[in-house]
Every structure is written in C-alpha cells, then in structure tokens.
Simulated assay, not measured.
Amino acid sequence: MISYPHLTEDTYTIGVTAPSSGVPEELHPLLQQAEEKMKKNGKTMVFGQTAWTQDKARSASAVERSQEFNAMIRDDSVDVIIPPWGGELLIETLEYIQFEGLPSKWMLGYSDTSLLLLAITLKTGVATAHGTNLVDLRGEESDPTTSRWIDVLTTEKGGSVTQYSSDYYQKEWDFENPTPHIFHLTESTEWKTVTGTPVKVEGRLLGGCIDVVRHLVGTPFDKVEYFQQELIGSEPILWYFENCQLSTTDLRRTLTQMKLAGWFNRISGILFGRSPANHPVGNYEVLDVYQELADELDVPVIYDIDCGHVPPQLTLVNGAYAKVSVQSGAGTIIQTFKP
C-alpha cells in the first residue's frame, strides 16, 4: 500500500535541506527571497546548514547531507521538505539514508532531488512529489501551473486532484530579469503523442529526471519489482521522465537498460517532459527514440508535458494513481491518492 503524507494548507513548516547542491554565498539572496515570500504567506521556515554551503559540486559530504536529511525528515516540527534545488551528486547519500521507519512526510523537488524521491517511494511506499524547487517559489506570485503544488500536497488520502497543461512555457532562462512569477512564459504549450492522435492512459505514477534515476538500476535501491508486486498489487506503472542533459543515443541506451532491467515489464505508458537536451546524434532524433519505444513496448508515449527543466511544471506524485488524457495539444492529469 502507498502512504500519502498530508499537509494542512493554512499552517505548516517548511524544512530546507540540500541532499545534493546547496546555494553558494553569492546566490544566498535567492534563498532569502524564498524565505521572505513564505513568511509573508504565514509559513514557518527551518533551514539546515547544507542549504547555505556549496563546494566541489555538493553542499557537504555525503554523511553530513544524509545526517541532516535523516534528522529533518524525523523532526515533528517540520511538515514538508523542499530542497533549494537539485544538483549533481545526491546518489552519494543513498547508502546513509535511514529508510527504515521513514515517516510519512512530503518531500518536493525535481532534477537530482528526484533520485531520492523515487528511492523513497520504491523502498518505503511513502508517496513523494516531483515538482517545483524552493528558489522558484520566491516570486511575488506563482504561475497557474507551478502554484498547484500546494493543492496536490493538501489532497487527502483517497481524494483526487486535477491539473491541466500550461498555456505557455519558458524557452530560455533570463536570470537577470525575473518576472513576478520568476519564469518567462513565452512559448505556446503543446502536449504531443507519438501517434498524433488523442490518448488516454492510466496507471501508478513513477519517475523523475532520467539522467539520475537511471543510476538506481541494479543497486539495492532498484525496488521497481517489489513496488509493483508488493505495494500496488501488480497494477500497471505509468512512467514519467524528463531529460536534463542526455543526447538521443544516451537516452536510448538508458531506456534500453531500464527495459532489460524489468522496469517496463508491466506498464501502461510513458510520459516525457519538455527537454533542453535530446541533442540529436547524426540524424537520430528524439522522436525516433519515442517511436521505437512505443513500438517495442506497445504502449502510448506522450511527450512535451509540463515536467522538468523547461518550466512550468506539474506536481506529479510517485505512487499516485493517475489518469492522463491528451487531445488537440492540451493535457489533463487526474491523480488519485489510492492506497
């Protein structure tokens, strides 16, 4: 069974720890702005030391990062954990994370953070939330897609929450000139299907940034089979992935490895987020990858959804039962917090 944390909308405390990258001193104003925004909205903030430090591609040593996370996730005064952002080397912490007896508490984030999110849900059955990171919540307001994170995290067990595709997405970052909602949403959003026809698909959500979650394959944290058989009663998995940096051939190798490892043995479909990467190799394009995957697995493949490093993004819950529909470039996802 899946355990869903629950956040009370009016009063909660946000814990900020950096299991991957912290924020270097010159960028501390980003964290301070996020803190000011949350406090203005009546929220309490608790910062770990790792949030404020960064050296050699990590906030601190693997032991220090994991110890801070282990303490914060078990701190009864903290209701939800939101790291500042992702990073590069979260995988170093996994062997030191105390998964046994992990309390049912929300953790929200994406990029490198998604590695820990997926590991938690696979090993413990505690639902985790793939969505915005903290520094992107520092604006005067929040765009209609990003802002739904709070609606998702306040959904009660057994309840459902509906999200829709965005109207516009951000093509390029302009860090020097943030808008009131941080992002520059200039490009028309279009969710697409490999077949080019409307698609409806449903299943248990699992996924994250494919650059990093792929490294769970073959490790003690590769519990996909256990998750499916023991925690969700052999229901089909609906995978979602977003690609940060991989070329098309690296993406193809990764998906093939996942297939060979049994991650796609019983699935209903795969969703891919918009990507700043997917760099073609020769004339091998990402659409070739999607088409080959759809043909091999005989499942729907939906792409360019609101997920990942090309904002804004939906809040997708690992473990939730989702119904996804795509028609005429628009998408709807209904997540039900089914045990």
Rank of each mutant, 00 (worst) to 15 (best):
V213L: 03
Q257H: 02
V161N: 15
P311W: 00
Y168H: 14
W85M: 09
I334L: 12
R252I: 01
E292I: 04
Q228F: 01
T53D: 11
D288W: 07
I270C: 07
G203C: 10
I270W: 04
Y96F: 15
R266C: 09
T50H: 01
P311F: 00
D306G: 06
S234D: 12
S61W: 01
L7I: 13
V286S: 12
Y169Q: 00
T186E: 14
M258S: 03
Y226D: 13
E292Q: 15
I302H: 05
F221P: 05
Q228P: 04
L216W: 04
K192H: 14
T254S: 13
T195D: 12
C244R: 12
P312S: 06
E36K: 15
P103K: 08
L231W: 02
R74P: 10
T189Y: 14
F69Q: 04
R214Y: 08
I97M: 05
P19I: 07
W263F: 05
T50Y: 03
D174K: 07
K323W: 09
L206W: 05
L206S: 03
S188Q: 09
V152M: 04
N283Y: 12
N133R: 02
W85C: 10
S142H: 06
Y12A: 12
L293F: 13
G233M: 06
T256I: 15
K200E: 15
D304W: 09
S268F: 12
V224E: 02
R252Q: 12
V135H: 01
S59W: 09
Y321A: 11
I302R: 00
L89C: 02
R65Y: 03
S77W: 00
L251G: 00
